[in-house]
Write a protein that binds this DNA or RNA. Structure first.
Lengths: 341, 341
DNA sequence: TTAAGCTAGGAAAACGTTTTACTAGCGGAT
DNA sequence: ATCCGCTAGTAAAACGTTTTCCTAGCTTAA
């Protein structure tokens, strides 16, 4: 249907030269082509807006100039930031980026993996909560030395796999230590769902910080949340009412729960940060109306996207970077929700 | 680099048949192939996890089973919702989706368009604020009858181009008429930046609603905003302080500005919705902490993504839908920020 | 016996490039 | 005169499929 596009053959005919010559000129391999010929070919290419068919090219070069990006859901701001970072890097070297949403489903993941290899994509950026190490699909990829790069997924069983990570444990520790540095000793904690890896890491970070400062962790100051507003809200009731816990500060494993907690504290007459300090995680871009703005830990999703794309592309180009794992450091963003004791 | 993948030739050899036969079996065109042969080939394909090279296939079928999605920025929630809708539809028929971010730059747009045609993509979903109708790149696309579908971009000069739209004017009218129905007559308005098309449409909708109900529009009740929190905040100062305007309700062209306005009103001691009613636009998913929650107009981005992908794919399949323009209706989401007079 | 019609399958062209290996012609050194 | 090396190019294979047209052998009806 897409009209009559010219081929390299037509250009060759038009210029009275061979296909080879045209190909060489187009690809800048003009070593032994006369200046006037080069001129003539360029002119014809310009005039007819000729551009060589990428698929024919792929056929012979075995490169598609395309990578795949597999995420659970682009609508999650972390992944859309990440995707943007990836795409920006790709765009810089004329690579295309396939977007694949899996919703965390193993079936969708495997479908996409099969689709993407087989030369539709030169490589793959991959996020998943599923167990890669026992997945035969990945075993095949590894066996074939297919280039990929993991995002936020440790794979101790398979060293040498490039990956980009955020230091969740360190971030949680940083948050908790900041509270401690402000004089807090009784610090409550709201975790993410216990099934997710980063929820566990954040809890470990919290515990590590307490331990490092000789503060005993108390079970009744720790509540399991769900990364949602309502989870944070309810956590306050559990901490305060059910358990009659006492604390001067609260570390919520993400900002949405911090917000829910803040809201419930307010309803119960407790002022933030005067009576209770709160620190969150994610540094979510809430509108400025939230006061006090919540002190939080920033996760550089966009930068992680860039980095992972760079690592993958380097690998594809056959110039793998020396370091195959890149860990992004957390950054404390001080705002208004933490007070000094 | 990606190891030794089998080709159809290998399978043919393995089964002692010709390439043609294997190809036919793989593509289900088994018209005249013996049952045992079919069996044998399927077995070999399974055993070696053979799947035909998509690029070789594209070469001859001239279909890439890929479409392009061109948006300004996936990080904008409207576009990530849209992208997800597009991708879901694509995934359903094993199409891939190329993601392209342009930041609204004409240069990037044109680069992507060149990249995507030339058979990297069978068709294109396109968003832009730039003037398509005078862009030679698009003229070429049209001339070649390359399948594409516009999103949120009217093109009266080029009827017959498929497109998916949101009724911004109707949405603004709906919002304004809701306020009127609640008894308001003096309704202030905060627009988006005057340069954008949807900002103008929303203003037109506001004016149309007033006119339809015999309410005179007043210049001093209309302020230009910027779609940002701070724009809404400042707008209140302009309306109230600079212009000493009097109004019982406010229509903000998006929710972020509505929030900014709400905040400033609160600071000035005006209660929402008791003293001033507010309605927004977008139905942004703000955390529940915002009370009163802001009544708003919903834009069904995900559904628009789905619809546009369906239209494009139908076109690509050579079965264009009868209706080439699909307009999505606004939906009023009543929450708590509008009171009755 | 012959022609027609099926059945099961194959040979080869085509898709649009890149790349490898080759050549014709010429100027200069030996 | 011969050889070498250089310049400016070309022919053809290869990439992995799909698709069009063909054929060998068999059955059946006239």
């Amino acid at each position: 249907m897409p009209g009559s596009d010219l081929t390299i053959k037509d250009i060759a005919k038009l210029c009275g030269v061979s296909i080879t010559t045209v190909s060489k000129v187009i690809n800048g391999k003009c070593g032994s082509i006369g200046a006037t010929t080069i001129e003539r070919i360029h002119a014809a290419v310009e005039k007819h807006h000729f551009s060589p068919s990428p698929v024919a090219r792929s056929m012979v070069t075995r490169k598609s100039h395309t990578i795949g990006l597999v995420v659970p859901d682009v609508r999650n701001p972390f992944f859309s930031d990440l995707a943007r970072g990836v795409e920006d890097v790709c765009n810089g070297i004329s690579y295309g980026c396939f977007l694949c949403n899996t919703d965390g489903s193993l079936e969708k993941e495997n479908n996409y993996v099969s689709l993407l290899r087989g030369r539709v994509a030169d490589g793959m950026l991959f996020t998943t909560q599923n167990r890669i190490e026992y997945n035969p699909v990945f075993a095949t990829l590894l066996a074939k030395n297919y280039p990929f790069c993991l995002i936020e997924r440790y794979l101790d069983e398979l060293p040498g796999i490039p990956g980009v990570y955020f230091d969740n444990l360190g971030g949680a520790r940083l948050a908790t230590e900041y509270l401690i540095a402000q004089g807090h000793r009784r610090i409550a904690f709201i975790s993410g769902p216990a099934t997710t890896a980063n929820a566990r890491l954040r809890r470990d970070g919290y515990l590590a910080a307490l331990a490092a400062h000789g503060i005993a962790a108390e079970d009744r100051l720790q509540v399991e949340g769900d990364y949602r507003y309502s989870g944070g809200y309810r956590a306050i009731d559990i901490l305060l009412t059910e358990r009659a816990g006492q604390f001067t500060a609260l570390f919520a494993s993400n900002d949405l729960m911090a917000l829910g907690a803040y809201q419930r504290l307010g309803e119960l007459g407790l002022k933030v940060p005067e009576q209770v300090s709160i620190i969150g995680f994610d540094n979510a871009p809430f509108p400025e109306v939230f006061r006090p703005a919540i002190t939080s830990i920033e996760i550089p999703a966009y930068q992680m996207g860039r980095r992972s794309a760079e690592m993958l592309l380097a690998r594809i180009a056959g110039k793998p970077e020396a370091v195959s794992r890149y860990v992004f450091a957390p950054k404390l963003i001080v705002k208004e929700s933490v007070g000094r004791i």
